[in-house]
Design a protein around this nucleic acid. Structure first.
Lengths: 331, 331
DNA sequence: TTGAAAGCGGTACCAT
DNA sequence: ATGGTACCGCTTTCAA
């Protein structure tokens, strides 16, 4: 069943049928009704490929995500997909892992499918300044980055101010008397770097000496973080509070502390289920995906419909207090 | 830049260029090299829409998932996407939520995009026997269901035997002396029903009386489950072990127990990060997504390339023992 | 308001 | 091995 069949069965030309399909105003109500009736009757669905060919778009947005089995990214993708769909776009999902090669490859795959735009989630690394693939992609299609920062033409970023959040956390801990705050991280993404900077700035402001031995990289897993913290204990490294780049690591650290019967403030990032599932429940920085993602999608669709949009939007984070730290107990 | 340009610049016809694109053997090596060189030089990427129109496929598979922000589904989607990509398919993601209306709508959206097949994850409800939308979809394109059971033409299921797992868990607990085992669930999916059946069968086999008051539905959140269990305590309902349809609920129950200073076996399902993040760490049934998903994708791609495949594949579950239950301590 | 016809960029059959 | 050409099913311009 194609447009010709509908044309024939309704007694109009394919041009008119096409107009009906595209809600053109230049069709009399009577004609429209008749054609719509035939379409319904024949259960007609226009061929998306042909449509894509003619319009040069299938209204699909590519989502490039390092790892969707990570709760944080999963939530982001979930939000993005929902917003996109509300705007009439489909989401072409692509999970790349951390390899730069894979990212390049998959980005090209998405571009080859002629997506209308690409949204990067958790993909913008800083260690690796090689953003040439993003630059190349941006020449073909808009690139929106969620919680990452890449400043290039046709590239837009919506991010949460996690640097400020880290700064605030550390300031809070220092004002509560902590002087040796452990910071755990796994990979140095953009937001990873920004957190460390916030950490340092806060120490400086508070007049607390910075000890590089307290910044430690651990494997991205509960057991990895737990093991690392146990290692610190046994090596005699002292600390009186913990901040981790994400809840998963904070949960691991917390397990190590609990096992030793230690009690100290622990703060995670992402405000994920893991924070809630931990016992005691983790205080965590909410990086506002619920705001970030809709904002990013709104901006993108505006852009696609011709409106200018800012190149960078920053949203403040929010600390969600749970059992591992109560501000009230610190001041 | 299109196939005509490449033809012109290389001095061959579009037919030959097309043959090169499709790796037809009927092209001399010399010609092929020359055309490939021109393509590379011009950085040519064939138009996927035109290709789709001609071939009647863009090699896309629709993934219909109730909620990808749920760790379990996220993991499933992650695995499926990766397997699909290895086979050269793209994943069109669609998160429906639990509403049947939305499911129908989104399923039709996917079909309208002319996907080569649809994979349903966490979508097959049993309460709601209305599977007419799946039946309709299966008339257009193969439907693969992961961990759900719908027996219809052109519909295939790959699932984990969670009924047997529930049966084994309960048998284990009974043989360890438990006689009042609480079962928490949120929604009655297919697997939800099967677990309850397993629960009942095991009780019967063990000669332990069944008390319907011990089967309780709770909200799908840690706090929801925790609150519900606290409610049971305060209403004086007695129980000596807990099984939950998923880790999230088990984690909530565990929190309620811990708060009361109670210690008893707790078993969750899904073997997710939540099980690991809990303290004490949750014993949980691993429903083998790592096997289920690749199997489903392999079967689907076989089917698409013309091979016959079984309508139903069942894989056994596996109990992962952690701190909330050690088999060694029970026997 | 409607229709005729020329694209859109490929695939694939039929010749040669 | 290569080329000519008729599709695939829709959009859109131009005329009427």
């Amino acid at each position: 069943m194609n447009i010709y069949d509908i044309a024939e069965r309704s007694g109009f030309s394919i041009a008119t049928v096409s107009r009906v399909l595209n809600r053109s105003p230049n069709v009399s109500q009577k004609t429209r009704d008749k054609i719509l009736a035939v379409m319904r009757e024949e259960d007609y669905t226009p061929n998306a490929f042909a449509r894509g060919l003619g319009l040069n778009t299938m209204r699909m947005i590519g989502i490039l995500c390092t790892d969707i089995s990570d709760t944080y990214y999963a939530k982001a993708v979930s939000l993005v997909e929902n917003c996109l769909r509300k705007k009439g776009f489909d989401a072409l999902l692509c999970c790349t892992g951390n390899s730069l090669e894979e990212k390049k490859k998959y980005l090209n795959l998405l571009l080859a499918k002629r997506v209308d735009a690409v949204i990067l989630i958790g993909s913008a690394f800083k260690e690796n300044t090689d953003n040439s693939h993003i630059e190349a992609a941006a020449q073909q299609t808009p690139v929106m980055i969620i919680n990452g920062l890449v400043e290039l033409p046709n590239t837009y970023c919506v991010l949460c101010d996690e640097g400020a959040a880290a700064y605030d956390n550390i300031s809070l801990l220092c004002s509560g008397g902590c002087t040796r705050i452990l910071y755990l991280y796994d990979v140095l993404t953009y937001s990873g770097c920004v957190k460390i900077e916030g950490y340092k700035r806060a120490l400086e402001k508070c007049g607390v000496p910075f000890d590089p031995a307290l910044i430690v990289q651990v494997p991205k897993s509960i057991e990895g973080a737990r093991g690392a913290v146990e290692g610190l204990f046994s090596r005699g490294v002292e600390f009186d509070a913990v901040m981790a780049s994400e809840d998963l690591l904070a949960a691991g650290a917390l397990k190590a502390l609990t096992a030793r019967g230690c009690r100290m403030p622990v703060i995670g990032f992402n405000n994920s289920v893991i924070a809630e599932a931990s016992t005691p429940a983790l205080t965590s920085v909410d990086n506002r995906l619920e705001t970030l993602c809709p904002t990013a999608v709104d901006m993108l669709t505006s852009l696609l419909s011709g409106t200018e949009i800012p190149r960078k939007v920053v949203i403040p984070a929010r600390l969600v207090e749970r059992e591992t730290l109560r501000v009230a107990n610190l001041s």
